[in-house]
Write a protein that binds this DNA or RNA. Structure first.
Lengths: 225, 225
DNA sequence: TTTCTCTGTGTACGGTAGATACAGTTGTCG
DNA sequence: CGACAACTGTATCTACCGTACACAGAGAAA
């Protein structure tokens, strides 16, 4: 995986035939496949076929599949958002919600952004726009600010992943019916949840707890929010 | 992927040749490969070769590769821990740290536990032993207790993943040197971090913020911890 | 001993990523 | 204009992957 690929703009060649494809068109076709059938369905063959070309033609635009996935992620993530005016807490709340929604729009990005990988400009841009609001005067060190943003991002990622797992929850219900007695506290919590009904506020709950925790530390450090 | 596989004990056959392999031996060989070279290096061929058998022999013990990975995860996770006595906060702090260390021991489990998958008894057991400490009398609803534990688990997973990415950080440093001016706040935070030195407390920082947030909610709900 | 079941093996198939060689197109320069 | 160089997409090839299936041998039950 070449890091430069996500950052460098390659000069458009002047000689030779006009390219029939483009990086953007390839990425969009791949994203459409991933949205519809998951990341596992994205193969060079499949994407090229979707565009009416042979798979090897894609290698004129991309060094390999890893780069394709990286470009897909960058495109699916979108430009970093313009956050509403307000304090750091409101800004980070909005930021994490937007990230959460981006993950929901393209659930495969969750699986595509695990492990070591080169970060593209947009992924860094999202980090930047959160850090811009958690400024240097909030009483947190640089490492703490980075970690605070990472915790929020991790929460958005985890909750988006959970909401993508309807059939997993169904399969788990079957298991719980058979082995529920081995997990009394888990069973109780799930029964309560089912009785309450409202489960869509799971993301907001965790996010607000994290922000509560940050706020209490900041208050301890500088005496105000 | 058959859910029953992780839960059911298959009866040992009485007739025919003695099995030369065992599920445990296969999983251990696969885990050794994954620990050394990553999950991508785990193929039926490779695991069977490691044991001195042909790949097709593995299918006498496992329906397919998905089940192999599921068994690997269950084995690598280990039995749910016995948490020290104490309040919910100390217990959850220890719990998330143990989970974090389990992820560090087998970094590939992070990538193997994304997306919809059948949960095994140990994965549920870990949830159970955390929920047992965040009891019904803490003022949180069932859904809130589940989400609180999920946030802590997600944090452990995310930080374990980050610490596995030394070369990613290195590659990012190169990128920042070239395009750092586009990300001033990110650059500042990273410079500060590098100057401070101590980055191993990143996990504890996030964990303590999450626990702070939970504590402040519980205090609001029932007036005490 | 015969029978039946389970074991591990060999072969085969369709899928994957990717290297390489090649034919056709097209801009630039003599 | 003609020759050349650069670039395109295609066809072919290798090396894997997971796994379906048929089969020979092992070994306990009948």
């Amino acid at each position: 995986m070449s890091v430069e690929f996500l950052w460098g703009e390659r000069a458009a060649p002047t000689r030779g035939p006009k390219p029939a494809l483009s990086l953007a068109a390839i990425a969009d076709a791949a994203i459409a496949v991933a949205d519809a059938e998951g990341l596992a369905a994205v193969s060079m063959q499949r994407v090229a076929g979707e565009l009416g070309f042979t798979k090897m033609s894609l290698y004129r635009y991309l060094p390999g599949k890893a780069e394709l996935v990286a470009v897909m992620v960058e495109r699916a993530l979108g430009e970093p958002p313009e956050l509403r005016a307000g304090g750091w807490r409101e800004a980070l709340a909005e930021w994490s919600e937007l990230l959460y929604e981006a993950f929901l729009r393209h659930p495969w990005t969750i699986g595509a952004t695990v492990g070591s990988r080169p970060l593209g400009p947009r992924e860094l841009g999202w980090m930047e726009c959160a850090l811009a609001r958690l400024g240097r005067d909030c009483g947190l060190t640089g490492a703490e600010r980075l970690d605070a943003v990472a915790v929020l991002a991790g929460h958005a990622r985890m909750l988006a992943q959970q909401s993508d797992e309807a059939e997993m929850t169904a399969a788990m219900g079957e298991v719980m019916r058979q082995h529920g007695d081995r997990f009394p506290y888990l069973t109780a919590a799930m029964m309560e949840t089912a009785a309450e009904g409202g489960q869509n506020l799971a993301f907001a709950f965790g996010r607000d707890r994290i922000l509560d925790g940050l706020e209490s530390l900041i208050v301890r450090r500088i005496g105000r929010v």
